[in-house]
Design a binder for these strands. Structure first.
Lengths: 167, 167
DNA sequence: CGATATAACTTGAGACTTCAAGCAAATTGC
DNA sequence: GCAATTTGCTTGAAGTCTCAAGTTATATCG
């Protein structure tokens, strides 16, 4: 005779299930919501918008490709394609890196900066309406702590994720 | 003379910025992480996996397309494409709805169920490792409450989002 | 009943992402 | 110094998602 296979999997409890589903629902709904908002008002998806924001904050409004990819938590490959598109829009420009001939700098153009200025208020409003306006200060703080923990755990002190050999 | 344009935008405070960025980082890192985990171990992205889970839980392991789309928080269109792919894998099958000739049922096949059985433990482990194992019970509860609030606010008591006229 | 509107779902094209592979420049290690 | 490795970034193809438009069936209503 055979014995039933041992199920030593620690399945999620009912309560954990509820938390996990609420998380998934909120996250997908919110990302969809912001994607639509920005596609409509700024003509680009949320990720691309985030790239412009990073550039706007950087000194000289420029960043090395790899640095930008790490800050935005996306792969280099994805960034390459994204910048190509943003370049076509005239919102970003590429420049050769003076110190490293392999390197490329993504530079926010004046036009790109203008788009950002025009659309940022609407975007902030959307974020407020969906998130901050609905949470108490305690919840906001709690959310920040929790998300920091999760993010930290997922970063092998690395962001590229283009690098399969790490992990 | 002209006056400077009034900036009545309620920008995010530094603290709000921190929360918002932590949120974005955690969410993108986690989704990427699970997408890779499932692509590697189950041969499908996270969303598709979620569809199989929904079907597995449904009575008769079948669901109307629209119902499935709502539960998974995706558009009907996206679901159509997804089911087409899952059908090719032999994990889902379409059936005509007996009561409504327009309707379609997505049915989880035995093969689909098997894939789920095989890969669920690994996936649960990944979720635990990334999320639950890192949070205190209080934080887990807090996360559940916060995410429920956000999700609720984003659902016009509707999930389709395919429906521009709502909104 | 018949016209009109609505609902369920699909389709195709274009945009975006991923993955593996590729190229060139910089770095490492004898 | 130079071969081997690593780093920085790009590319193309295949997969996925969005958006608008299309089809068929049901519901509404005068």
């Amino acid at each position: 005779m055979t014995t039933a296979p041992a199920d030593d999997t620690r399945w999620l409890t009912d309560e954990e299930q509820r938390v996990w589903r609420a998380y998934m629902h909120a996250v997908t709904l919110l990302e969809d919501h912001l994607d639509r908002q920005l596609q409509r008002d700024a003509g680009m998806p949320h990720v691309y918008y985030g790239l412009l924001v990073q550039l706007a904050e950087a000194p000289q409004r420029r960043l090395r490709m790899t640095e930008l990819a790490m800050r935005a938590k996306i792969t280099r490959s994805r960034l390459s394609h994204a910048v190509a598109r943003l370049e076509q829009n005239g919102w970003v420009r590429r420049e050769d890196c003076p110190s490293d001939k392999r390197g490329q700098l993504a530079v926010l153009t004046d036009q790109g900066y203008a788009v950002l200025s025009d659309t940022a208020p609407g975007h902030v409003a959307a974020v407020r309406q969906a998130l901050f306006d609905r949470l108490t200060p305690e919840q906001q703080q709690s959310l920040g702590e929790i998300m920091s923990i999760i993010a930290e755990g997922l970063q092998p002190s690395e962001a590229g994720a283009d690098l399969p050999w790490l992990r």
